[in-house]
Structures are given as C-alpha cells and as structure tokens.
Design a protein around this nucleic acid. Sequence first.
DNA 1: TTTATATTTTTACGCGCGTAAAGTTTTATA
DNA 2: TATAAAACTTTACGCGCGTAAAAATATAAA
Lengths: 343, 343
Amino acid sequence: MEGKKIRNMEEFASVSGISRPTLSKYFNDPTSVRDSTRKRIEAAVEQYDYRPNLYAMNQNRRLTKNIGIVVPYLADPFFAEIARTLEDHVLRTGYRPVLLGSHGRPELEIENLENLRLIKPAGVLLAPLGRVSDREQIEAFCKEVPTVLFDANIDGVGEAFVGSNNDQSIGLIVDYLCRTGEPPAFFEMETPTNPNAYKRRTAYLAAMERLDHKPLLIQAPGEGWEFEEIGFQEGSRLVRDKTLPTDTILCSNDRLAIGFLSAAYEAGLRVGLGPGCALRVAGHDDHPFSRYTCPTLTTVSQDYEAIAKKSAETLLQLIEAGSPADSREETLFEGRLIMRGSA
Amino acid sequence: MEGKKIRNMEEFASVSGISRPTLSKYFNDPTSVRDSTRKRIEAAVEQYDYRPNLYAMNQNRRLTKNIGIVVPYLADPFFAEIARTLEDHVLRTGYRPVLLGSHGRPELEIENLENLRLIKPAGVLLAPLGRVSDREQIEAFCKEVPTVLFDANIDGVGEAFVGSNNDQSIGLIVDYLCRTGEPPAFFEMETPTNPNAYKRRTAYLAAMERLDHKPLLIQAPGEGWEFEEIGFQEGSRLVRDKTLPTDTILCSNDRLAIGFLSAAYEAGLRVGLGPGCALRVAGHDDHPFSRYTCPTLTTVSQDYEAIAKKSAETLLQLIEAGSPADSREETLFEGRLIMRGSA
DNA sequence: TTTATATTTTTACGCGCGTAAAGTTTTATA
DNA sequence: TATAAAACTTTACGCGCGTAAAAATATAAA
C-alpha cells in the first residue's frame, strides 16, 4: 500500500500514468486494451489497491456486468445446489451473479424481477415458480432483459429454456419399476407447487399407457413448499387406512418421497426390493439427501451441472451477441437412473 | 400509465409538481416529508410508474439502504432457513438485503466482504465460517462497516454477536440422555468445519464432568461440508468394527446425525429408546429434515426466529445511531429439547 | 526506414441524483 | 390575525465514471 488511498479514477490515472478513458475501457473489459498496458494497469491496481466505484460505473453503462439468478425457493437443497453451480459459471466468465430466492411466493418473484430491472442486469437466469407465476409480468420482463429460463418452462417466454427431459426420466424409472415388480402408482400433490409436477404426471400416464398398465394417481392434499410434511401426512394416512393401491410408489419428487419413507418407517413398513419388504418407493431429482434416507432412495438424477452450464452459456452468448435469439431454443437433458435401496 | 415514460427525477419533478430536492428527500426516507406531500408523491409514483435510478442514488449517498447477509454455506438448509428469515426482517424495515453464500471457502468469504464494500452497505449480518475464517481481514472489514456476527462468534470482532447458548443446549440434551439411559459419547468431526463445533465439544465435556461421567469423544475423519457423508462413513465403520463405546451417541449437529442414522439403518441396527433398540442417537440444531429421519431425530432446537430478529434489530439500531456501539453485546438464545424417536 | 493501422491521450460533455444555501410558502400555536 | 417554526422551492454545484472526437503516439507490415 503506497501512502494515501486513491479516491477515484482520475487520481488513479495520474499515479498510474495511464489516461482515464483507457482505464475506463480496461475496467469494462480487460482484454480491450493492449497487453502491455493491461499489465501496467494490473500492477498499479495491485500497488494502489484501487477498485472503481461500482455505482458510478453502472450508472452510465447501458449494460452492467450483473447477471440475476432467480430461483423459486432457496431453502430447497435442489435449488440451492443449482444456484451455487450457476454462480460459479457466471463468476468464471467475469460477470457478477446476483442471487435471489422467491420463497415460493409469486409476488416476491415479480418483485425480484423488478428489483433486478433497477440494477440493469446484462441478463437473467430464471427458474420460475411455475403454475402460480404471473406469466404476463414475467413475459414483459423478458422483453426488456435477456432471460434464459431453466428448470421450469413457460411456453414462449424468455430467449431459451434449459431443463430436464421429464418424459425420458419418468419413462426410465417407470420402465425400471415395471420390469422389477408391480407397476407403480404416482404420488404427487393435489395442487402441485413443484414447477415440473404436471409434466411428470403426464409423462407417468404416457409411460404406463405405453406399457399397457393402468395408471394410478395418488394426490396428497396440502399446499406450499413443505413437501416432506405433505408426503409424510398422506403417506401415514394411506398406510393407516390400508388404501395403497399397489406396493410400488413413484413420487413426483424426492422431497415427497423422503416424507413418504418417513411415514412408512413410522408405520413399521419395510421399504425396499428384497423379500420381507412391503413397499417400494422411488423418487425423482437425486436430491442431495436422497442417499441418506432409510432405505436409501432409488431415484432419477437431474444433471445439475449440465443444466447450469448450458443455461449460463446460452445467456452469455445472447448477451455477447447483443440481440435476441432468432429462435427460442429448448434444451432438455436426460436423467440417469440412480438405483439405491428403496426400489 | 400516463403517456410517455419518465426518464429521471427532474422530469418526475415537473410532472408531479414537486421539487426535486423534496423528491430526493422522500426517496431517501418517506417519513421525512410532510404527510400531505408524501401522499402527493405516492400518487404520482403510482401514476407515472417512476422509480429512481438505484446507481445514481447510491453513488452520492455515503450510506446505501443495502444490508449484506453472508452465510457460510447456502446449500445447508440450516443457513438457508436463517438467511430467509433475516431477509424478511431486513425487508420489513425498508432496507434491501443482499444475500451471499461463502460455499465453505474462506477466500470466498473475504471476496464476499470485499464485494459488499463496493456496494457501500449500511451494515452487514455475518455468519462467519469459523475456524478457517481469515480473522484479520474480517476484523478490518468490521472496522469499516457496521457488522453484527451471528451463529458463530469471533471474539472481539464486529459490533455484536447473536447466537445459541451451546453450553445450555448441549447441557440440556446431555442431561436428558443421561437421565434416560447410558451417558452419551460425543460424535464430531476430527477437524470440524461447523463453526460451533468446538463450543459444543467443550460444552459436552463440561456437562459430562458435572454429571460425573467419563466423556467419550468419537472423531470422524474427513473435511468439507458433506457432513451427512462423513457421519455415514464413520458410523458405518464404527458399527462394522463394533467399536462403539456406548449405545448412546450425541452428534455435534443434525447433519452428522442424519448420516449416522443412515449408517445404522443400513447395518440393520434399530435406533430408538424402546426395548429392542440397539442404539440411541441425538443431534443438535433441529435441522429442517430432522423430523423426517428414520427414526425421527431427537435434537435441540436453535431459535432461528429469535436469532434472526435480534441480529437484524441490533444492526438497525447501530445503523440508525450512526456510531459504533460503546460495548460489544453478546446475546445467546437457549435451545429447546425436541424429543422424537431416536433417543 | 516508411507507411498504414491500432492504441492511447487530451479534451470535453453528460448521466441521474445528493445536497447545501437562501428565499418563499405553509402550518402550527397562540 | 400575527408570528415563529417547519416544510418546501429555487439555484447551483459536485459525485465518479462513460464515452465521443480529435490529436498524438506506438506498433506492425511492407
């Protein structure tokens, strides 16, 4: 640290011997100046510990280096994990991730987008709440800010969509379950909050039809994001009333399955495939906790890493192109069967 | 929406018939203007859909309305939950929460603080990584920005600390376990990443001494934040080698316990209190998932809501006072025993 | 070395808002 | 209705940086 602190770019220009416009250019994009000057600037930055004022920078730029990341529910480990991965990718490309969770509330989702608009982000990665999202407002937002949707699609909204192929992944696990035992019933929420729920239900119905089995839907009452609790309550009720239509349950997502497994355990029902097991339970997502349930949860993984990578890359291409995509690309990644103890 | 869009406060002043300085005052603090003018402004804001430019606002203010919230690991539901609660409290008081996770990495923790400094926050709520935190850098930061530590204390750093009383909570569960069965062994990580781990170990040793029992420490190898995996691995090993020193295990936190329970289940060991149970397992934190383990996890709750409320309130008082606290207040909330199936 | 080209410097203005100072109007209190 | 206090308006300047344009310089190609 060399003497007193630099207060602004003007001062930094004089002590570093580089003109302010060049410095400005450098801070906007380090590769836009000659190699030799870049090195001089970097040395001076190091020496004087100078960082430009973010607010003044962003005020005058038409586009900032901010990229918004909005997920429906940060307390859900699935979204926390994918958000973390996205942050990494965004940082690596020299942008600043701004992470926002919607806490499951559509108003907050819109408020998040409005707050993002205030910070003039270069682009936004949005996993919408789904069914309850305010489509109109989101659509309006996407017209102003380059946005890539991930996890949950809203038809025609945003420049692109990246997610999982629910048809394939549900098909995969239905096939597996049918091959190794009774055809599964599908366990879901009556009015699902989970964005992909309807897709999965449809995929289940299609898969069962394809295999010539009669589909069985079990719909648990309850709202909100306490999936485990909902799975637990309805699971307990089904077991208590002995109204389970089959011995194989495919849950719409792992969190429901976690609750269901807990209910089965409490009821003394042995879950798994071996002899002596009363029930098979499978999930979907390969939730971080699914390998520690009792028994460990058989499920289909979503390719977090691939989804995050593709979303970030697509958005950056869009930003650097500087123009809307000519067509709305939808990328679906395939799920992998994760065979564990529960089915 | 009245015709064309307002581009700046100047324009908004002319269409609304209120002078710019007054508008500026209003946007900085709505209660600082007369009631009648506030209503006029609010009507105009509504009518013209005007919002001041955040960057221009913050550039000239010495203090922004931003409050940083930094937690060690966002993918840990415990921190996700407390972060969510903090966000709520901050929003309610008219500030803007800026949420950052350190992904368990000390460099990232420091980088988060540096990025926060760039946005000139009014204050920061920081749950440090603990042992691995760069104390010196954090201390330097706290001297520049009013900071309240929560969850994990760093002696003398920050204006205040809010957390749980580990002595009390560990004492509580040790008492309970001793009263209802064999004295517990303490299960923890060899080199704990969890910020409160050492406090809890010390509290365990003290409690056992007080009750005239010989303390038993079990230290699992492994690093990082994959606590469940570490609990699972070491749990499996202990059961396989039959080296468990007692039938009662108190885990340093619920995530370790979740892994341990999974190991016990896989090994066919029945966990719980009744006859026919080979093992009792207890945790600490009342982790969101602890009520869905098999069996459900007996644990000590941390008072999330109280910790969040007190932290936010303390910081806001500090900010509004505009001066450092005359003494560093430490507030500890007591844990409650949550009796479930596992012990 | 000369010449064409790419970078940098100089100069100058603008962004949208904070805020101080002095003058004017409104409101509260009597 | 007079009077003091509070709130507002007018005027003016500054914040730290983006960026355009013209001139000066460095680099690469011939």
